[in-house]
Simulated assay, not measured.
Amino acid sequence: MNLQSLLKYGESETLEFKEKFDDRTVESAVAFANAKGGMILIGVSDKGNISGVDIGKETLAKWANQVSDKTEPQLIPEIEVLEFEGKKVVVVNVPEYPIKPVSVRGRCFKRVNNSNRSMNSQEIAEMHLQSTGMSWDRFPAAGKSLEDLDLEKVRRYIRKARVSGRKGFGEDEDPIRVLEKMELVKDGKPTWAAGLLFCKDGRRFLSQAVIHCGRFKDQTLVIDDRLIEGTLFEQVEEAIGFVRKNTSVKFVMTGKPEREEVWDYPLEAIREAVVNAVCHRDYTALALRSGSMKMN
């Protein structure tokens, strides 16, 4: 392990510096376990300067036990010692935990860039569902009924799916039956996914299921913004329309009957970014800045 290389890049989503072992070290271990895993260097300042750490015969075992005793489920980190210019640095390797989230003293943390953030109850529930191969949108929507769905939108989806050949629906198949086959309706109740895809106009099936688009002139000045509601299908198309509206395009004459359009951002990349964001989050912020597009 090249200690100098690690210090060169600084703290990140997978690397943390600590001058000493304390409760914050355990929080970092939990945050790494709830993400992709990571490494904690003890005996290094926040700026990456090696201060070293004094360790005794039982120090490493004591630290490992503290991590295990304070975490639920128990984490068992791998600990080793490196020496640099006569100073000792302890390396705590924390693997990603398969069933999340892991907690410390009843609190769960996640890694965001180079810091640890406390998780709220919704984030905890969603992380657990994802780690067990499930998703909240597969569950029946509390307080909702089939009356909240627009069956004509379902019929339009069926027609498009039949034309594209992606689904083998019958020509006159009942829309509710189709939703049941797709597990979007269970025991006569629509799932959250069904509502997000086929809710009636003017009804927000889930309050935070919107896209907020903004175009920034600089870090603080917004020169165009739009809050997009509706079904996920509608949100995707309107978000792409917002990006197109705020994206420069030049026309190249190639000698062909039609001129060629060259966009600042490839349209397929824009569509893929918007679709991925909408499909994976309740709330999506789409920000456009000069020379870049960012999904938050």
Rank of each mutant, 00 (worst) to 15 (best):
V102I: 12
A125E: 14
M119S: 07
L15F: 11
R138Q: 12
K186S: 10
V278H: 04
E85D: 14
F17E: 01
V102N: 02
S131A: 11
G170T: 07
A64E: 14
E16V: 13
A141H: 12
A142N: 10
M182F: 05
R244L: 01
P98T: 10
R138C: 04
V236R: 09
D225R: 11
V275N: 05
A61K: 15
F205P: 00
I223T: 14
D54L: 07
E229Y: 09
R159I: 05
F21C: 02
G106W: 02
Y9G: 09
D174T: 06
D225N: 14
S164K: 11
K200H: 09
R215Y: 06
N116V: 08
D150H: 11
T191M: 08
A142Q: 13
G255E: 10
N93F: 02
T247L: 02
W63S: 00
H280A: 12
Q208W: 09
F233S: 04
Q208S: 15
V94G: 05
G43M: 07
G165T: 11
E80Q: 12
I270T: 04
I240G: 02
N65A: 15
G86D: 09
R156L: 13
P190A: 14
A277G: 13
I99H: 08
F205G: 00
I211L: 04
F17H: 00
L267R: 10
Q208C: 10
K189T: 05
N49H: 13
